[in-house]
Design a protein around this nucleic acid. Structure first.
Length: 493
RNA sequence: CGGGGCGUAGCGCAGCCCGGUAGCGCGACUGCUUUGGGAGCAGUAGGUCGUCGGUUCGAAUCCGGCCGCCCCGACCA
């Protein structure tokens, strides 16, 4: 029987869990808050990683690896950073187990570490300790490094992909001679994320800067891309931080400039995580399952042959020929010729998994020189000629990619509202969800009050030009104080 | 850390109130028939009933302790 998927309209959170499970993207592990990522999920991550990695390298970055364990004292060096992460760190205190008198495996109390090791929640500290050794002169700058790694943040409440205690991500850490160069780098990487989100994930995003309350612990400015999920909640998809000289000062990282003077280095860091997979699911999924954008789908086209006891050989031959043609054209294709499942079962299975295009080839199709093509996003069946099939598929994949982006963008537009007074703001947040644009006086007081009263937070102060009228000055409807422009509010993941 | 729920076959669950041979569905395995939207029939295998203790002739069931997981809140990518 089919794995039951709760309809989105009934219970969106349950739908999400059902879909992740049914599409075999992730499963729970024996340890609370950590997850197993089977091939379906991991190949998706690999494709994301490849896309991003290419862009990182195209902008001059190189990959490196820094250790999982960080001396506890390192984390304490930057005050704001401690505040931000101390509450959610896993700490290694011992290095040995032993079997006790009762035969139980226990932590050996004799094997206590002199200094506890923190499992990295992020790597700024270990990296800046290293950079301080690498950097002496302005000639050593910039340093443009990225690492692909796992990190641990001991979360109280977890959700598959969206918030797990251990997750996979990339973290870029760069060092610069000037403030301007570091700021430029921060913004450049934000652009990389936005491009990736929109062109690869088909997920429209708002670019903006975080308020002080939402800022990364230790950053001067945090920039972000914010996406809107189908249930009207916002999701932060990636962040890029201008760290100023905070970490350079904490780790005494200086360089000698061209005038021979010692200066602190300017820093950035930026990251996206497996959380993006959650964003992808909640941007495009439907009641039948996941919907994957072709550029990221591990399998772009699945071929289902309709086999009969008599005369299935011509069908298989045709299916293999199609597979070859598409493979040669650089399309990721899978021929499911397993006899143990019937075609209907396979149709449903690949819909759950979100494969963008399905081809069915049966005896009738072979006779007529056609294949049946079904787009995952639209679901309509069409018969297309075998002739120049690769081209047809390529166009179809492009069309799916574009179609997903367009409908996600249309959704965001119909779920973005403007509020001019607090009452209608509250009504919009409560009843409509989505992004609400409203004037804000720039103070933490009103921001906190709104959060407490409505659970909505300022997702970002959007860059100019993304919304009509957000850059016009006005009045904060709560405090009556002047506002430089509307900011983006929403309830968020 | 508060509130709620749940631990019984790989997965989902019933059985518990009222103690007495551990069951159902899905999945798996074998065979046959099927195959254009999650096939049908027949058969087979699979269990320390979360854990420790108590009550009892006898505990999945009653009592107590402990452990774990999920959901909702406070906190966060």
């Amino acid at each position: 029987m089919a794995d039951k998927i709760t309809p989105r309209s009934e219970d969106y959170a349950q739908w999400y869990v059902d879909v992740v499970r049914a599409a075999k993207l992730a499963e729970y592990s024996p340890v609370r808050g950590s997850m197993i990522i089977p091939p379906n999920g991991f190949e998706l991550w690999e494709n994301m990683r490849n896309g991003l990695d290419f862009m990182f390298k195209a902008t001059g970055h190189r990959n490196a690896y820094f250790p999982l364990f960080i001396p506890q004292s390192f984390l304490a060096r930057e005050a704001a950073h401690v505040d931000g992460f101390a509450k959610e760190c896993a700490v290694v205190t011992h290095h040995r187990l032993k079997v006790d008198e009762e035969g139980q495996l226990i932590v050996d109390p004799e094997a206590k570490l002199e200094e506890p090791l923190v499992v990295r929640p992020t790597s700024e500290t270990i990296i800046w300790d290293t950079y301080s050794k690498w950097i002496q002169s302005w000639r050593d700058l910039p340093i443009l490094i990225n690492q692909w790694a796992n990190v641990v943040r001991w979360e109280m409440r977890t959700r598959l992909f969206l918030r797990t205690s251990e997750f996979l991500w990339q973290e870029g850490h760069t060092a610069h001679a000037t403030e301007q160069e570091a700021v430029d780098e921060t913004l450049q990487m934000l652009d990389v994320y936005a491009t990736f989100a929109e062109e690869w994930m088909a997920m429209p995003v708002i670019k903006g800067v975080k308020t002080e309350a939402e800022r990364f612990a230790g950053a001067v400015d945090t920039y972000c891309i914010e996406a809107l999920m189908q249930d009207g909640k916002a999701l932060q998809g990636g962040t890029s931080h201008f760290l100023g000289q905070n970490f350079a000062k904490a780790f005494d990282c200086t360089f000698q400039n061209q005038e021979g003077e010692l200066e602190h280095v300017w820093a950035t860091s930026w990251g996206v995580s497996t959380r993006l997979i959650g964003a992808l699911i909640m941007t495009h999924g439907d009641d039948k399952g996941v919907v994957l954008p072709p550029r990221l789908a591990p399998i772009q086209v699945v071929i289902v042959p309709i086999l009969r006891k008599d005369g299935s050989e011509p069908v298989l031959e045709a299916a293999r020929a199609v597979r070859q043609e598409l493979t040669d054209a650089g399309i990721r294709v899978f021929l499911d010729d397993r006899d143990q499942y019937r075609p209907g079962w396979k149709f449903t299975e690949y819909e759950v998994q979100g494969i963008p295009v399905r081809l069915a080839i049966g005896p009738r199709d072979v006779e007529n020189g056609v294949v049946e093509l079904v787009r995952r996003d639209l679901g309509d069946k069409q018969s297309v000629p075998m002739e120049s099939l690769a081209e047809t598929i390529r166009e179809t994949l492009d069309s799916v990619q574009q179609g997903l982006f367009d409908s996600a963008k249309a959704f965001r537009e119909t779920h973005t509202h403007t509020a001019d007074d607090y009452e209608s703001f509250k009504r919009l947040i409560e009843e409509e969800g989505g992004f609400v644009l409203m004037h804000w006086d720039g103070t933490a007081e009103t921001e906190t009050r709104i959060k407490e009263e409505t659970k909505a937070t300022i997702r970002c102060i959007p860059f100019p030009g993304q919304f009509e009228g957000t850059d016009e000055s006005g009045v904060d409807p709560i405090s009556g104080q002047p506002s430089k422009g509307r900011v983006v509010f929403a309830r968020a993941y």
